[in-house]
Design a protein around this nucleic acid. Structure first.
Length: 877
DNA sequence: CAATTCACGC
DNA sequence: GACGTACGTGAATTGT
């Protein structure tokens, strides 16, 4: 059997892992991200390489023998962040648990230890693999030694064999040090020859092979200035080579025999993993994951199972849980009710509640407060049984969402655990999960629901205090709670669809898709799965020889923007794009909608009111917020959305440029405010300012670019994002942004101030005090931090717009009520509201709807609403 | 069942 | 100077 030695550059990999992963904390408050990343990599190496010998080498300290040659060696390096240094002792413990030897040597770097052992191992006919993030090590590449370098993060790596090295860097292993000698290395502060970079270095080495040859034949070097630079910096070049050369004869005190590897002891490793909080890794080493923190003891709770609802059961301040096991409350069965109040905790079986007039009276009594979790779910479920829940004036879900939307889990037990009410089990513990999910015997169910109700009951004061402290109580009570009731009614009412029309479209589309499919097969010369990028890639880029524009992690990218760039190269592309477009319509919209139509030919979406980080709503099963509109082909889908009664119409009203108006208001930018006060075309106005042209000289291209910039401002995209949408370079995009800020200095000031303010406070707010916490603003990772900065700029804009439309919905529902109109809200799509109404109300709606929407809040710019109506959603354009 | 890729809307 | 970049939902494929 061949012997295999794996050598790991400990510092390098720890560094990579640290910067690649977010700052994970374990339960002891110790940062573990570098250790975690290191561990996953180690597990992968053990699995893939199956080494017979192994060592992790560390750097020994500040000074090395190289500093005698050049005292500025590695000067100017950023200090190791304390969050990382504190992880090194634990990392060594972890390696001990893995039974992996680690070693460091005073005055030497990890590279030298690795180099020395690699050479010894080669003599002994080992196969050697070195793991690092440091390109310097490439000088060790040989027939027997492979260097595996991290590419980005820690999960992607490249294995450098002699061939791969030549292909990638255009030099041999022996030439690596000479290359460093010429180009230097800024990260190690190796000077090299000033003015010579990688390109020049490679060129020179291709011509002369070695540094010595270059200087022997300096006259033959082409380029006067290069020649001069080489001549002037000969000493520096040779010193640089010395610094970059790995010492393969370091006086190490370990031998190959010392570092043989026989695997790890699972129990020892398991203990360390548990200590570090690496639950997810336990399963990877064949240990069972923790079986629920040793089923923590719940405080006993007396639960009364109610067999007949009496009015004395209720106090007027009662927490109610309506339990359903599936997400879709339009179709779910209610498993039972939990109730908690000052007197105790109760379980009411479904049939007992539904057959009880007392229960119904209580639910519908608006003098009795109900505290619930997910008021909309509760309202709709009860509506299905003819009960209209009144005065639900506290919702733990919405409260939790407003307190901190970024918490991943907004279910009762999770919230309970966060806020200190831990006497409740997680649903999974009671019901199981996946295929094995089932309702337990009645006692267990009763206790679970009663405990959940207790959590709501007990946490209400605390949650409200927290909201009050953040000045968000009004946001809950006067915005989200009333909105939930309205959304519930909208969902319950549903939207009528013309199923026959959809069926027609389905057949038509099906026919066209088969045609296109055949054409593609012909053009490709074979049949394959058109929906599989994995199968499509090789056909386009290998068989048909089209140029590769972009790659994904797993192969060739075949996304629309790639295909568009190939459009004029092969007939097949146009067909593929058309197939994608129509295929999307067929599968997602046509077939997707048919799947969710109920027996009355209505669609009941669910609006998620506690999900997005900005305060917008989202919509599921089906998502009615992304029905096609841009392309005519897809827009026709809207013809299937119709009013639910004869002589009714669909009435649609949308805010014009609400985000930019909100921006003008928040930023108090004079020019932007003026533009809206004068009701100008905002994209043209932006174009005039950014390009410094008169209206008469505006081109449609200028307006298009200005529109993209405005879009970017609203959605918080980066220079990169803008460059993508305009097909320009990042630099040009940045110039656009700079010019925009010059034109709208108020916006620039706002953007700068909001980031500073957010950094100081830790969060941003909207006009109605919605909050978003942004801990990443202090990240050392440029990407992470930049994203947080854009979020800080963007969330007040998007979130305030969301606040406004939510308030408009409440105002509108109320207005329709007081005006005693039949018109009903159906949908809300971010900046537009869709209603259905009798034709007779159209004239009134034309006044009422814009009036309400435009005046729901008072900003320093007017809000503008456009509207339209028709026999279908398509016609309301 | 989860991850990946793609595509639709705002 | 690299990094890899709006938010959502959903379908299909693919490998576990």
């Amino acid at each position: 059997m061949t012997k295999k030695l794996v050598l790991i550059d400990g510092n390098s990999i720890a560094y990579r892992a640290f910067f690649a992963l977010p700052l994970l904390n374990n339960d002891k408050g110790i940062h573990t991200n570098a250790i975690y990343g290191f561990t996953t990599m180690l597990l992968r190496i053990l699995e893939n390489e199956k080494p017979t010998h192994m060592l992790v080498a560390f750097d020994a300290g500040k000074t090395t023998f190289r500093h005698e040659t050049f005292k500025e060696y590695k000067g100017g390096r950023q200090k190791t962040p304390p969050e990382l240094s504190e992880q090194f002792p634990l990392l060594r413990e972890l390696l001990d648990a893995f039974s992996v030897k680690h070693y460091q040597l005073s005055q030497y770097e990890a590279d030298d230890i690795i180099g020395t052992l690699a050479k010894q191992a080669e003599q002994d006919e080992f196969e050697v693999k070195v793991i690092s993030g440091d390109k310097d090590l490439l000088q060790l590449v040989s027939d027997k030694t492979t260097i595996q370098l991290t590419r980005k993060g820690i999960s992607e790596t490249d294995s450098y064999t002699p061939d791969f090295l030549l292909e990638n860097m255009e030099v041999t292993a022996d030439q690596i040090v000479d290359m460093k000698a010429l180009m230097g290395d800024s990260s190690d502060n190796i000077p090299g020859v000033p003015g010579v970079g990688q390109k020049t270095a490679v060129k020179l080495l291709k011509q002369f092979q070695t540094l010595d040859h270059i200087y022997e034949q300096l006259d033959e070097v082409s380029g006067k200035s290069i020649k001069q630079k080489l001549a002037d910096n000969k000493d520096s070049a040779y010193m640089s080579r010395e610094l970059a050369t790995i010492d393969t004869k370091a006086p190490i005190e370990v031998s190959l025999a010392d570092i043989n590897y026989d695997g790890y002891q699972t129990p020892a490793l398991s203990t360390v993993f548990k200590d570090l909080g690496f639950q997810s890794l336990l399963t990877r080493i064949g240990e069972e994951g923790e079986t629920e923190e040793v089923s923590q003891e719940l405080a006993p709770l007396d639960v009364t199972i109610v067999d007949e609802v009496k009015s004395e059961l209720f106090t007027g301040e009662d927490a109610l849980v309506v339990e359903m096991l599936t997400d879709n409350y339009h179709t779910a069965q209610v498993e039972g009710f939990g109730l908690a109040n000052a007197n105790g905790a109760y379980f009411i079986p479904s049939d007992v509640a539904y057959n009880s007039d007392v229960f119904k009276e209580w639910a519908q009594d608006s003098s009795k407060s109900k505290w619930v979790f997910d008021v909309k779910r509760t309202v709709v479920a009860l509506l299905h049984h003819g009960i209209t829940l009144e005065n639900a004036n506290f919702d733990l879900l919405l409260a939790s969402y407003l307190i901190n939307a970024s918490e991943n889990h907004h279910d009762i037990p999770a919230i309970g655990h966060r806020l200190g009410m831990k006497d409740v089990l997680y649903d999974e513990e009671v019901y199981g999960k996946g295929a094995k999910m089932k309702v337990p015997e009645v006692e267990a169910l009763a206790e679970h629901l009663a405990r959940k109700a207790m959590v709501i009951y007990n946490l209400k004061p605390e949650a409200e205090a927290k909201l009050s402290e953040n000045e968000q109580l009004e946001l809950l009570q006067n915005l989200e709670l009333p909105l939930a009731a309205i959304l519930g009614e909208m969902e319950y009412l549903g939207v009528q669809v013309d199923v026959e029309r959809i069926q027609e479209m389905k057949e038509q589309l099906g026919g066209r898709l088969t045609e296109i499919e055949q054409k593609v097969y012909e053009l490709a010369g074979e049949e394959f799965n058109l929906n599989s990028p994995k199968q499509l890639g090789p056909i386009l880029f290998e068989k048909l020889g089209l140029p590769v524009i972009k790659k994904t992690k797993t192969g060739y990218s075949t996304s629309a923007d790639v295909l568009e760039q190939l459009a004029d190269q092969h007939e097949i592309i146009e067909q593929l794009l058309l197939y994608r477009q129509l295929g999307k319509l067929q599968s997602t919209y046509i077939e997707g909608l048919l799947k969710v139509v109920d027996k009355d030919n209505k669609i009941h979406t669910r609006f998620n009111q506690a999900l997005t980080q900005t305060g917008r709503l989202s919509s599921t099963e089906p998502n009615l917020q992304n029905i096609p509109i841009r392309l005519e082909e897809g827009r026709k889908i809207r013809q299937a959305f119709v009013p639910s009664k004869d002589n009714y119409v669909i009435f649609a009203a949308d805010y014009s440029q609400i985000e930019l108006r909100v921006l003008a208001h928040i930023a108090q930018d004079e020019k932007l405010i003026e533009a809206f006060n004068e009701d100008m075309d905002i994209h043209s106005r932006t174009a005039m300012d950014v390009f410094h042209v008169e209206e008469k000289d505006l081109t449609s291209n200028m307006r298009r670019q200005a529109k993209a910039v405005n879009f970017g401002i609203v959605y918080g995209i980066s220079d990169y994002g803008l460059s993508q949408s305009l097909g320009i370079t990042r630099k040009e995009a940045q110039q656009f942004i700079d010019r925009y800020f010059k034109s709208f200095p108020g916006v620039k000031t706002y953007m700068e101030d909001i980031v500073q303010d957010a950094k100081q406070k830790g969060f941003v707010t909207t006009i109605m005090n919605r909050r978003r916490y942004l801990p990443d603003l202090t990240s050392r990772n440029f990407n992470v931090r930049s994203f947080a900065e854009r979020t800080a700029m963007n969330t007040p804009i998007q979130g305030s717009a969301a606040d406004i439309i939510k308030k408009a919905m409440i105002d509108l529902a109320e207005r329709l009520e007081t005006e005693q109109m039949e018109a009903k809200l159906l949908l809300s799509v971010h900046d537009e509201l869709i209603l259905e109404a009798p034709e007779s109300e159209i004239e009134k709606l034309k006044e009422v709807v814009p009036d309400v929407m435009e005046h729901t809040v008072k900003l320093d710019v007017p809000l503008k609403v456009d509207y339209s109506y028709g026999k279908t959603w398509y016609d309301a354009k």
